[in-house]
């Protein structure tokens, strides 16, 4: 009765909710039981945001506890480090190497950790990617979320066409072309590594 647990972390405004919706919808179409837990409201305003996606034959709790995430999909470097205690000992991290300073760093009350990527690789299997550059290559910096979904998708057994269909169904029509391209860039990046 075990589930596969994916934790999506990032900074409010980076589009983690859309990523979790694409992921959740693809999993439903694959026939899994799926639960997705989001947080809305105040914490969305530039704060740390966490979304849980769980799937399997039967999912009870929608949340993921410490040491329970199979995959952490992180939209920002520091946020991956924050989420590290949630990763299973043999788990995997996919991380966007983009750095966004939190307010304590901006005000000088704290330092952005210089060794964040090293802290991740010391504790987990890590796929690091400059998703912001790939998103810009696709046409908009806002497509970081779908680049990362592309990388995640390349490491699942779910057929690529299923992901493309899901993006077509989930994303409004006028943003589809750029998002499909962003997905493709992420998917290929992970395969070519």
């Amino acid at each position: 009765m075990s589930t596969t647990n994916i934790m999506i972390v990032g900074v409010g405004g980076q589009g983690t909710l859309l990523a979790s919706r694409i992921l959740g919808n693809a999993l439903v179409q694959e026939g899994y039981d799926v639960k997705v837990s989001e947080v809305h409201g105040m914490s969305q305003r530039g704060g740390s945001v966490v979304t849980y996606v769980k799937f399997g034959d039967k999912v009870w709790s929608p949340i993921i506890g410490q040491g329970e995430a199979d995959i952490i999909l992180s939209f920002e470097l520091l946020e991956a480090e924050r989420a590290l205690p949630y990763l299973r000992p043999d788990g995997q991290i996919i991380v966007n190497t983009q750095q966004i300073d939190p307010m304590p760093v901006i005000t000088g009350a704290a330092q952005y950790p210089a060794d964040a990527l090293e802290a991740l690789t010391a504790n987990a299997r890590v796929t690091a990617v400059d998703a912001l550059s790939l998103a810009k290559e696709a046409g908009t910096s806002r497509a970081v979320n779908v680049v990362l979904i592309g990388i995640l998708a390349s490491q699942t057994k779910i057929p690529k066409e299923r992901w493309l269909d899901t993006i077509r169904q989930t994303v409004p029509e006028k943003f589809q072309a750029v998002n499909l391209k962003a997905f493709e860039l992420g998917y290929r990046y992970a395969q070519e590594r």
Binding site: S43, G46, L78, P104, V105, A110
Partner: peptide, 9 residues
């Protein structure tokens, strides 16, 4: 790891 509280956009 510094905290990341919500901020005005």
């Amino acid at each position: 790891v510094p905290v990341r509280p919500p901020v005005m956009c």
